[in-house]
Amino acid sequence: MTYEFTLADVAYLRDAAEALAEVDRLPLTGASYLTDVAKARARLGERAGAVLETVLLRRKAVTKVDEPHEWLFTDSALQQATPAPVARLRARRFAGRDVHDVTCSVGVDLAALHAGARLAVGSDLDPVRLAMARHNVPDAALVRADALRPVTRGAAVFADPARRDAAGRRRWRASDFRPPLDELADAWPGADFAVKCAPGMDFAQLPWRGEVELVSLDGQVREACLWSGSLATTGRRATVLRTKGPEWTVTDEEPDHCQVAEVGEWLVDPDGAVVRAGLVRQYAARHGLWQLDERIAYLTGDTPPPGIRAFRVLEDGHYSEKELRKRLRAKEIGRLEILVRGLDIDPNTLRPRLKLRGPNEATVVLTRVGRTPMAFVCEAVLGSELASDP
């Protein structure tokens, strides 16, 4: 069970720097947790729960905000919060405008929007989250309001609807979001707006969206953002962010001339944002790659894009478990990464059956070409060994 904050808790926490610092000095690990909780309760009494939960949430928030030790969160708000690099990317399109975050929660997205907007307004129905947002983003204008009942005019709108039910299960249908996406669009007719949503949903069910942008951070797809009105700049976009390294983007306006042919020297697994956005062919055309199969996202070529992790093909052939085991044994492969696409194979089930032995390591890519299952035994090469920017 997570701690349920109250308005009284928020009022206390806003001026509880000493108590928070004292509890933050406790390890709060699995081995010490019960002892640490007892110490906090002896020192803080009924306030111990709020302080302990805040310290733990701040430790988790290091990937979400730049200065987590200054922030107040609830557990569910932190889980849904946008990582800071992604929030800053999105906020760039709102720069210089009046913007209204109509589901501002504790203010993570609002903080990024406020940094570049002419005027930033945040609203939410939850009074506790709104009180936390007043602490986290003190210079923004905040009001308690329903996202489906406009309280501003002329501002660009941002929304991050809840995507989990009461049991914590993810929602995938637009009608199951809170608020539902179509109702949100209907509530703000003519407004330029952006909606953060689940990367795996069916965007075709949302005819009002102008642009679908898939965003990844350090190799993990983080979100989809639906842009409308003048905020939309293309139909589909994939944006790839890296904590260390430049960002890049590919759109559906780029050429998609990409042949299907036999494997080259390298295999390339495009970033998940590129795959989810349906821009594999555009990415291939940009880098002179081609497809093994027009329905499979793996690409191949004689020169991989710089700055990525690519796979030098050592040998390839028809896949059978027996044949793959034989090949790996001949190469003395004891450590194996297994990548699968287009085949019903569970790597965790397959790996022990391969009976790996030896000092060497490799990556095997299992996929299909047409109806033929194929196995490509590869050497993985890190982007730093290739170049810097795709």
Rank of each mutant, 00 (worst) to 15 (best):
V215G: 08
E337F: 06
P180Q: 02
A238E: 01
W248M: 05
P27M: 02
G342T: 11
T243Q: 05
E385I: 03
A111G: 00
G264D: 10
T300Y: 07
L56C: 12
I333D: 08
A91H: 07
V37T: 08
V263K: 00
V137S: 05
R312N: 02
H257Q: 14
P150R: 08
D271V: 05
P352V: 07
V215C: 02
D269V: 07
A162Y: 03
H100Q: 13
T103P: 03
R312Q: 15
V212W: 00
A155G: 11
L148Q: 10
L13G: 11
A91S: 14
P304Q: 04
D101E: 13
R58W: 02
R90K: 15
L289N: 06
C378T: 13
D15C: 09
L119H: 13
R41M: 13
Q259T: 15
T249W: 04
A284Y: 13
V195R: 03
R329N: 07
R58P: 09
P27D: 02
P390M: 04
T63R: 15
G30Y: 04
H287M: 02
L20Q: 11
L324G: 01
F94Y: 12
A141Y: 09
Y298G: 02
P373Q: 01
V86H: 07
R295Y: 05
E265G: 09
S32Q: 10
D186E: 14
P306T: 14
A232I: 03
T303G: 05
A277Y: 00
A297K: 00
L267K: 03
L78H: 05
F203C: 11
G30E: 12
T372S: 11
Q79M: 15
R276K: 13
A8L: 15
A42Y: 06
S384E: 15
A380P: 10
R353V: 11
V215P: 05
Q80C: 02
V260M: 08
R209K: 13
W290T: 11
Y12G: 05
A120H: 01
D36A: 13
D75M: 03
A191Y: 03
L57D: 02
V381N: 00
Y283I: 03
I338N: 01
R47W: 14
E379C: 08
P306Y: 07
V151F: 00
A21G: 08
K322H: 08
V10M: 11
P180R: 00
R242D: 05
V51C: 11
